[in-house]
């Protein structure tokens, strides 16, 4: 008999000292079962308690990571700390965001626990330990059921809407001085820009993306300006990154980032199967294209048949 999860540890991501919005939908998802919810915090445990309790967290766990950034931010060290918490608290479920950070952390946790994992879930049924994820370049949704003592799920950011569910949260601090050794040394990293000018693609609520119709790299400044106004992230089709107009990190699609924003604005993107693989779960798609036969237009919620170089500046002006 496949036992349901009773104690779920949720790996919380913070940014500039506060809990990232995308965590709350993940907590809502974990809260659908009858499990106790533990927030696993690498930092900011003390200050985050109140906002986490609003969504149903009953225990806030300080993983007790060392202050030193090269150690604290090392995904291997963080994974070991999560594993230590799972063992110490007797957790039988682990949730984390399938964000850029999460993709380098959650599979490490599953590997150390030797526990099954479904990454990039669009939905989870905690009672049946079943995660819904996309496969085959986004053409198929698969329901994957996990068995074993511990189940691990990576949740696609923004896949589930957060719903408040007030709870009382208590604090637990795990002993510092746990094993923070790692065969991997983190030597340098880019600080995420504190001015918020770069919204992460995977977690963005709005994405403004450009394709072949952008014509060159300079024109992408239009998208960056537009994104800046909307607090959106800039996405790109494979053509745009292969042409070198923007870095790979902006690519949305089967070989790029897979995203589920509230709104995806596709500018001059025809809409290949591979591109749809990365964004078809967007809640709303707005296509701006000169070609009425573009697949993007046929699969949009709203479309504009027109010149993006006329429409984007107007949008920038009007917001």
């Amino acid at each position: 008999m496949n036992q349901r999860m009773n104690k779920i540890g949720i790996i919380i991501e913070t940014e500039n000292g506060s809990v990232k919005e995308t965590n709350f939908g993940m907590i809502t998802l974990a809260n659908r079962g009858n499990a106790q919810l533990y927030a696993l915090m690498g930092e900011n445990a003390a200050s985050a308690g109140a906002s986490l309790a609003e969504y149903g967290i009953t225990t806030v766990v300080d993983l007790g990571l060392p202050e030193e950034a090269t150690v604290r931010l090392n995904p291997d060290v963080r994974a070991k700390a999560v594993v230590a918490a799972v063992n110490e608290l007797g957790l039988d479920g682990v949730f984390g965001l399938s964000s850029a950070e999460g993709k380098d952390l959650i599979p490490r946790v599953a590997a150390y626990l030797d526990a099954p994992l479904v990454m990039d879930c669009l939905d989870v049924d905690p009672e049946n330990k079943t995660g819904r994820t996309s496969q085959y370049s986004g053409k198929v949704v698969a329901d994957i059921q996990l068995t074993g003592d511990i189940a691990v799920f990576g949740i696609r950011p923004n896949a589930v809407k957060a719903e408040a569910a007030q709870a009382e949260a208590t604090m637990v601090s795990l002993a510092a001085g746990a094993d923070t050794s790692s065969a991997l040394s983190l030597v340098s990293w880019d600080e995420s820009s504190a001015d918020d000018s770069q919204v992460s693609l995977a977690e963005a609520d709005i994405i403004v993306a450009g394709g072949r119709g952008m014509k060159n790299g300079d024109n992408f400044s239009l998208l960056f300006d537009c994104a800046d106004k909307m607090k959106a992230a800039v996405g790109a089709s494979r053509v745009a990154v292969d042409e070198g107009w923007v870095p790979y990190a902006h690519q949305v699609g089967q070989t790029g980032e897979k995203v589920s924003p509230s709104v995806y604005i596709a500018c001059g993107i025809s809409g290949s199967i591979q591109h749809f693989a990365g964004m078809k779960t967007a809640k709303m798609i707005i296509a701006v294209n000169t070609d009425e036969n573009a697949a993007m237009v046929a699969n949009s919620d709203y479309y504009v048949l027109g010149d993006l170089f006329e429409i984007l500046p107007e949008i920038i002006k009007q917001i």
Partner: peptide, 22 residues
């Protein structure tokens, strides 16, 4: 292994959208 991941359902991922022109 002491656990497993098994596909229990597969379905085409289709999003039915009704495009409206602006």
């Amino acid at each position: 292994p002491k656990g497993s991941a098994k596909i229990v359902g597969l379905a085409p991922l289709v999003q039915n959208r009704t495009p409206k022109e602006i």
